[in-house]
Design a protein around this nucleic acid. Structure first.
Lengths: 329, 329
DNA sequence: CTGAAAGCGCTTACAG
DNA sequence: CTGAAAGCGCTTACAG
């Protein structure tokens, strides 16, 4: 296998200039029919493949978008990223993924090297000043940070939480415990805010215990809950994982869900449907979120269509399954 | 914000040639101390950032690896990919992800454009002839295909399955049902093969029902199992998801795990530990697999260290939790 | 230790 | 419709 054919090799084989080969490949309509045929033949014969680095250098673009998430191992992101990749791939763009904090550190020291044309940011906890300094089109997804001053896309977390609270209240629950998310995270705070608003609006009693979205924190919350003198019979966990942790710990303590306590989660991860019992939860349309974010970023990059100026909110809905039931009377 | 500074701008500011700036940045030891200081100062002053496309074009490399998986949305891959990204990022390499089938189609028509230096392949079901034709260093991870003729890394699936079977037999189970994985997938076939070997070796009775790793197929298997005249009291599912499907369906039918049936999974995904009951399963060291694969590919790319010639097998271990118990006597 | 020059492989005004 | 030429921004033998 000899070295890769270049444009010049194709040009030589076809008896035309490299300019013509380039045009025949990128703007076929501008090249004479016969010439084009000769070029295509030469491309075949030489096995020519474009060199992306050369094209990118010349065109001053990378044909790539970078997805930054705080924890790539978290299953919540996988479907979102898959959707982004699907859209980007169809548009001929590459997708790079990186840990947001590690990448932020890298960008701070090395600076941006032009390997991406735009960023989809799934992390609202970075230094805003740094983020504002990044010289690339960006869109925030799921998480957000007002100080970034960026266009973004997310579900309406507060409205979604209200759905959960309403559901429990509709079942007759008058006292609802929220296992909160981490309060240094927008999703944690907005769900907590939403919880207190919804509880007040509905006129039921709210209770709150700290958590951080993890199964471990859900389990811890369950142990705390079990010691409460007058246990609330309804729990709204800030994430599905947290709800799983709570429920698994209940199972260990011999407490029945939903018999003894109703549990609602948030996210609707793949396993929610097959948990025991199946988890009532807020469905986040992750594929749709990823797709839409990718589409608007790509439109901005390739068609120069301006990014929306503000954050766009998508409606989430409640999926009622087996983990909630009517309050005991 | 004016246009980005180039090497030439730095050179002008420092009063040296671009060659010297380049050396000061890439091989500082080869440049005079005072010169180097002047260059660094100029870099600061101009806010210079390297242009990756130019560097890559000149050096004929991409500083990037491509991870190809059959289903990016599958949570099984997220931790593996996170580990790959971690290692690659530390080595200054970018990681691109793509759906293996879509990317294969793209490569078939467009050919490789040099945007990656190497590939980590998590899919054993591609056309071998095509894969062999890809002009890039590759390593197979988790899945494999002998026809690819590639170096690879995976756990020893057959040995791992034996662990599961042994465990159930040790608990006194004499009849074990395997909910198989898809038989067009190496993992499905090797686990099935391993099952029959282990069952024969141990002298217990084996039974087999079809599945495809999904929760849905596990649930279906549970319904079939429930109709069996003489139900085996031990089930080994080819994946955790399949086990979850089986168990959740059992719960719906009022069948107790492990009271009525012991269940073992395979993978040890994050939720296994917090399922109800917690799932006894084979632990795949996903972070380690990702890390090792990335390390050996990167060593090959950057140090020219040759890739191992054959597939390397990593030992997996059994994690005993609450979903298995002694056979009723 | 440093510089002048070539060259990586493309694309794109500019002419004709 | 096509070509000659410049240039994208680097790195690296080659001289000195």
């Amino acid at each position: 296998m000899k070295t890769r054919a270049r444009l010049a090799d194709v040009a030589a084989a076809a008896g035309v200039s490299t300019a013509t080969v380039s045009r025949a490949l990128s703007h076929p309509e501008v090249v004479g029919e016969e010439t084009r045929a000769r070029v295509m033949e030469a491309v075949q014969a030489t096995g020519y493949r474009i060199n992306a680095a050369a094209r990118d250098l010349r065109q001053q673009r990378a044909r790539s978008i970078l997805v930054l998430a705080p924890n790539l191992a978290n299953t919540f992101f996988s479907r979102i990223i898959a959707a982004i990749q699907e859209v980007a791939g169809a548009a001929g763009l590459t997708v790079q993924i990186s840990d947001s904090r590690a990448e932020a550190a890298r960008l701070a020291t090395l600076g941006h090297d032009g390997r991406a044309d735009g960023i989809i940011l799934l992390d609202g906890s970075l230094d805003p000043e740094m983020v504002r300094g990044w010289p690339l089109p960006m869109v925030e997804l799921c998480e957000w940070n007002p100080a970034y001053d960026l266009p973004g896309l997310a579900i309406d977390n507060e409205a979604a939480v209200a759905l959960a609270v309403e559901h429990l209240a509709d079942l007759g629950h008058r006292r609802i415990l929220h296992v909160a998310g981490p309060q240094d995270n927008v999703l944690g705070t907005s769900r907590l805010t939403g919880f207190w608003q919804a509880v007040a609006a509905r006129g039921v009693e709210g209770l709150e215990v700290a958590g951080d979205f993890t199964m471990r924190s859900g389990a811890q919350a369950a142990r705390n809950w079990a010691t409460m003198p007058d246990r609330p019979r309804a729990v709204f966990a800030a994430s599905d994982e947290c709800a799983f942790g709570f429920m698994s710990e209940c199972a260990k303590m011999g407490i029945a869900v939903p018999g003894d306590v109703s549990v609602v989660g948030f996210d609707d991860v793949d396993f929610a449907d097959r948990y025991i019992p199946a988890l009532t939860t807020i469905h986040q349309p992750r594929a749709r979120l990823g797709r839409r974010a990718a589409e608007s970023l790509i439109a901005a990059l390739t068609e120069g269509r301006p990014l929306p100026r503000k954050r766009e909110l998508i409606e989430a809905h409640l999926v009622i399954r087996g983990s909630t039931s009517a309050a005991p009377r």
